[in-house]
Design a binder for these strands. Sequence first.
DNA 1: GATGAATGAGGCTTCATTCAT
DNA 2: AATGAATGAAGCCTCATTCAT
Lengths: 190, 190, 190, 190
Amino acid sequence: MERSDKREAVMQAALELVGENGFHGSPMAMIAARAGVAAGTIYRYFESKDLLIRETYGCLEKQIIASVKAEYPHDGPIREQYLHVCQRLFSYFLASPLEFRFIEQFHNSPYGIACRRDKMIGKKEKDLITELFEEGQAQQLLKELPLPVFFALTFGPLCDLCRDHILQFIVLDKQLIARTAEACWDAVKR
Amino acid sequence: MERSDKREAVMQAALELVGENGFHGSPMAMIAARAGVAAGTIYRYFESKDLLIRETYGCLEKQIIASVKAEYPHDGPIREQYLHVCQRLFSYFLASPLEFRFIEQFHNSPYGIACRRDKMIGKKEKDLITELFEEGQAQQLLKELPLPVFFALTFGPLCDLCRDHILQFIVLDKQLIARTAEACWDAVKR
Amino acid sequence: MERSDKREAVMQAALELVGENGFHGSPMAMIAARAGVAAGTIYRYFESKDLLIRETYGCLEKQIIASVKAEYPHDGPIREQYLHVCQRLFSYFLASPLEFRFIEQFHNSPYGIACRRDKMIGKKEKDLITELFEEGQAQQLLKELPLPVFFALTFGPLCDLCRDHILQFIVLDKQLIARTAEACWDAVKR
Amino acid sequence: MERSDKREAVMQAALELVGENGFHGSPMAMIAARAGVAAGTIYRYFESKDLLIRETYGCLEKQIIASVKAEYPHDGPIREQYLHVCQRLFSYFLASPLEFRFIEQFHNSPYGIACRRDKMIGKKEKDLITELFEEGQAQQLLKELPLPVFFALTFGPLCDLCRDHILQFIVLDKQLIARTAEACWDAVKR
DNA sequence: GATGAATGAGGCTTCATTCAT
DNA sequence: AATGAATGAAGCCTCATTCAT
């Protein structure tokens, strides 16, 4: 296995185990075993368990941001942009349940408190979406509410439903996703 | 201290400490100290830490249900009932940040996975709210969406905003709560 | 075993093992085994290995100070006081080889650097001996040298010889001790 | 780098790091880094960390012996020879604090216990100094004491003061060194 | 019933040493 | 010969749970 492959394997193992069992259900020894390396090896790539977790999260964040930005209708109407973001996030999370579970664990932990402000999709991405909401308000398309409320009205339902889907309490198909995104739009639109 | 008082004290201590520090920041010895009892004593009331946590959660659930049911406008219009539920939950959580934090911790942990199906407000309460949504659909006031989507559109934003408020990323006043509840109604209403 | 007995047992075990094998040859598990307790038990009495070591040292210091002060000829001549101190320290260390070895280890370690200034016999005792040297200089009985040199001329040979005795490179009997103390006096006296 | 250069570099690195941080603050990886070689490379020159340390000590010993022997007044009076030895050792240690610290660490560790018999200045050197003391006794210039006592009266103060100087508890200038050496001579002389 | 000292398994991390390249 | 990534034993410490008092 190459150096960078091993690093990836460790992060992947951390991702899976934390997604499955939470941080405290994922000892380093278990992560090492899952990654197929010795326990000490992890420390060649990550200074501590904390940093392993944080870097793993950072990688996910980048992927999500990239996914949201791909084919983003920069010149389209606000509503279209909004629905694009929702669709993308639904797609990403439903296709990557372990990643979703990991992110949830991360946000709901001391690790995540520090970057809680950055919301589910991270700082940079928030900028994109922040712009979306601000532009929407400037155009008087959206309600007069503080930004965090827009985030809550959007990502709250989105995450809840992804979790329900992953736990198989509901089946989200394309059509249902689309209608849910529309419902969120109803919540934020004026 | 009477038997049941001691039991209450332990649960209260667990609630506070878990709310403040999370499960793994709340050793049994610390809970015992906060409750003013000996560590071993806890085990006369609760079989294990797991069960202490679960029973503490159960108590909170009951309180919340009671709070939502109080002055519930059984004969009022759907919209009024919906807004009542939202208002009550906001009130309860904002007035009880530790309780809120505990519930969040609980849901996002192995403990909570098993009872995830019961949603934030619990099984019994879901029945009340389930009826609300079902009646709303019967009256063609609500969108045609599966029940879990209604829950997500309602409790997703609600919890996100309570967390934001408790973490002081936003200040929710009466008016903002009301407008947020209205926005949720916009999401679910037809 | 009583509570305080257990505390004593742990310190005694630490004393012995550190004396025999040094700090890094004395894992907590080994100290616990020697003391007849479980590893975790040590932490009820000592916050950390560091503190266990430091408190053990502190106990020894007290004993030594007490030993030196006992029957100290407060009103005798300087020379007699000086010889008393030497005799006492020789007696103590030769009768307590493990204690001696422990103290040496302690002084020659990061632990001991902080209190190096306090010399072999500790702060309070240094005060007594410091007074001795200062009074000796005031009476023009001693050479004109800085205090640390007096300490070195006294405790340097003393410790070296105790070590040699304990390692059985030499046998120090009463007479030899007396003559060595006299030789030290020759070094410091004018 | 030539083979023997690399060997030297490793020993030099070991010397510096152990002097600065002690044995247990000097992992092989750190020694390798300081020496500018790979960790594994050390093992081509030294069987183990233990042996690296011991050989490094051996080198120092040789240097010290050489330093003491240089310009040794073989035909001078005993007193002059004695003061020469003291002066040389003071000079060497004060000019080489890391070397001094290393030697202290070494002597006060499991490594050093085995060669404790060889005293601070080593086996061969002891021969020179042993001769000095024996000749001094033959000439009835020195007290009637066993050899180890002479060593203790000489090297005990010497090392203590070097340590104090290095730790900056005292400043040893030429004059103070000379007077201290004289004081030691007072201790051993008849 | 209550206590809290004691237990010891298990967690994170370090580091001397090995070995494939 | 040299490299340095990999190993895994071992160290310190925590804490849920037990049990003698």
